[in-house]
Computed example of a mutant assay.
Amino acid sequence: MSETAPAGTSKTPRVVLVTGGNRGIGRAIAEAFVAQGDKVAVTTRSGGAPAGTLDVTCDVTDQAAVDAAFATIEAELGPVEVLVANAGVTADTLILRMSEEDWSSVIDTNLTGTFRLAKRAAKGMLRLRRGRIILISSVVGLLGSPGQVNYAASKAGLVGLARSLARELGSRSITTNVVAPGFVDTDMTAVLSDEQKSAIRTQVPLGRYADPTEVASAVTWLASDGAAYVTGAVIPVDGGLGMGH
């Protein structure tokens, strides 16, 4: 990138991988890195990556698919220098109704899938002796939420995963951090009724939902030169909803 790069961004384009980047928060993150001039790959299960990105099909519950996606990205763009693990699913229901499949599918995608991605990305980053791993969690992982014991457990697990990686990989200049969004204006929240949306806003000190670009700003900062000494952190982007956690 040129010397006129926006404040807080790197001057040299990096290879960035954003999983689940075809909509919502993931799409905003991918677009933010593209705007900085980085070389961005996006993995999805069904396509639809943003313009200017390398669209790679990948199911994070399949280790072979993860390995194949990284091979494609490395061949097309180069080794992954920034990993943003955003892909996630929900299967909400109260615990007495929650099936084994409801539990295992959410854990396998949100937590074990992130483990697969981080493990594969770390191989290349260790060779480079630098890298940024950013995991997208949720305020629910810190506060809990009725009907979401599987989702909350998976998102809480990302914190332990990230902090362990921060300690393992830090000596090689690889940082690992977590961004924990609150309620964000996406397709997932658009289906809520006006009454539900109003009730949620009353819980948020800032009195509104986040825009996906506000989450993306936290992610790009963690990947920037300005955050080189930040690792093992959990950055809330929740309007104050989870403060104290």
Rank of each mutant, 00 (worst) to 15 (best):
Y151W: 04
A166R: 01
G124H: 05
R163C: 05
L165E: 07
K39W: 11
V42C: 06
T186P: 00
I107L: 15
S138K: 03
N150R: 07
I73D: 03
G8H: 00
N177I: 11
S217D: 14
A51D: 06
A122T: 04
S104T: 10
E76N: 10
L117E: 03
I25W: 00
L143H: 04
G232S: 09
T202I: 10
A227R: 00
Q36W: 10
L117M: 13
V56Q: 02
Q196Y: 13
V139N: 04
I136K: 00
T19A: 15
G8L: 15
A118C: 15
N86M: 05
I174R: 05
N110Q: 13
A51N: 10
D38C: 07
G8W: 05
A218L: 01
T231N: 06
S164E: 07
L192T: 03
V140K: 07
V106E: 00
K11Y: 13
T202L: 15
T43C: 02
N22P: 10
V230L: 00
A69G: 03
I95W: 01
T175Y: 09
R27M: 11
G26W: 14
I95Y: 10
V215G: 02
V16R: 05
V66D: 05
G20N: 06
A75G: 12
G144Y: 05
V204C: 08
V191R: 15
S198Q: 11
G182Q: 13
P13E: 06
E81D: 09
A121L: 09
A64H: 06
D194F: 09
G88F: 02
R27A: 14
G26A: 11
G26P: 03
V16T: 00
G26E: 14
S137L: 06
G113Y: 12
P13G: 12
T231S: 15
A210Y: 01
V40P: 04
D187M: 06
E76L: 08
R208P: 08
A223S: 04
